[in-house]
Amino acid sequence: MSSEQRLLRTGAAVVSLAGLLLIGLGISGIFSDEPEPGPVAATNPVPSVPGVPSGKVAAPMRAAKPTAVYIPSIGVAAPLMELGLDAQGAIENPPFDPPNQAGWYRYGPVPGQRGAAVITGHLDTRSGPAVFANLKNVKRGDQVQVMRADRSVAVFVVDKVEHAPKRSFPVRKVYAKLTYPGLRLVTCGGTFDRQVHSYVDNTIVYAHLAAPYYPKS
C-alpha cells in the first residue's frame, strides 16, 4: 500500500471519527431548550510549567505511554485511555462515562515523539458537559501537558485552534507527517443540528512540543 493510500485510508477513519463524535456528542441539547451547563470541573487541576519557551520546538522524547492530559488554561485534568479502530475502521470513541475521559489514538505517534499525536474527547453527554467542553476557548500559547508512564511530562504549546466543518475535516493537517513532535486535540463544535442530532463542526487544537518536564516528586 502506497503512502498516499495509507493517508487516504487514515482520512476515511478520521472522517468516520468526526461523524461518530458529532452524533454522540449532541445529546444534551435534544430534549431541552435550557442553557448548556458549565464545563466539567477538573478533578486534579495543575498549573502551567514555568519557563517553557513558547516558540521553541523541542527534540523528540523517548517513547512512553501517555496516561493523562492537562490543559491548565481551561481546567482540564483527564486520564487518557488507548483508542484503536472499530469494526468499521473508524477510530474508537472514549466512553461517555466517566465524562472526564479522553483518549489517545494508539496507532499514531506517542505524544512527545516525532509526528502528529492525536487525542480526542467528548464535548458533552446526555447529562451534561464532558472533558473537552471548553476546548474552543484554548488560545495560542497555552500549554497542553501530557503525563507519561515514565513520569515525564511532554509540555506542548498551542499554535492555533481551528473550527472546521464536519464535511471538510482537514485530514492531511491533522495527520500530517511532521518532522517534529506535534499534538492534535479533537472534539466537536459549532452549532447543533437537531435534525441529524449532531454538531456541524469539529474543534481542533494544533500544538508543538516545547519542552520535556521531569517532576521532582
Results as ranks from 00 to 15, higher is better:
137 N>E: 10
35 P>T: 11
72 P>F: 11
46 V>H: 03
136 K>F: 11
211 A>Q: 15
60 P>L: 04
137 N>P: 00
63 A>F: 09
93 N>T: 12
133 A>C: 05
3 S>Y: 01
134 N>W: 03
153 V>C: 04
120 T>F: 01
79 P>H: 08
6 R>C: 03
13 A>E: 02
208 H>F: 00
13 A>Q: 00
209 L>C: 00
202 N>F: 01
140 R>W: 00
65 K>F: 00
47 P>M: 14
5 Q>H: 14
186 V>K: 02
84 G>S: 05
141 G>V: 11
36 E>Y: 13
67 T>Q: 00
89 G>R: 04
165 P>D: 06
112 G>S: 10
157 V>C: 12
77 A>H: 09
53 P>H: 06
21 L>M: 15
157 V>D: 03
88 Q>V: 08
73 S>R: 05
94 P>H: 10
118 V>E: 03
111 P>W: 09
122 H>Q: 05
147 M>I: 11
47 P>Q: 05
91 I>T: 06
96 F>Q: 14
217 S>Y: 13
44 N>I: 12
162 E>Y: 15
58 A>D: 02
195 Q>P: 05
127 S>F: 11
27 I>R: 15
143 Q>M: 07
66 P>G: 07
207 A>W: 01
27 I>N: 15
101 Q>L: 10
14 V>D: 06
144 V>Q: 04
187 T>R: 09
95 P>W: 11
96 F>A: 15
148 R>L: 10
31 F>R: 08
28 S>Q: 15
157 V>P: 03
123 L>P: 08
217 S>A: 13
156 F>M: 13
185 L>V: 12
83 L>H: 09
194 R>Y: 12
94 P>E: 12
84 G>K: 11
198 S>R: 06
170 P>T: 06
108 G>P: 11
10 T>P: 01
37 P>V: 03
186 V>W: 04
176 A>P: 04
205 V>I: 14
182 G>F: 04
143 Q>R: 06
21 L>H: 15
78 A>E: 13
29 G>Y: 09
192 F>L: 06
32 S>L: 04
157 V>L: 00
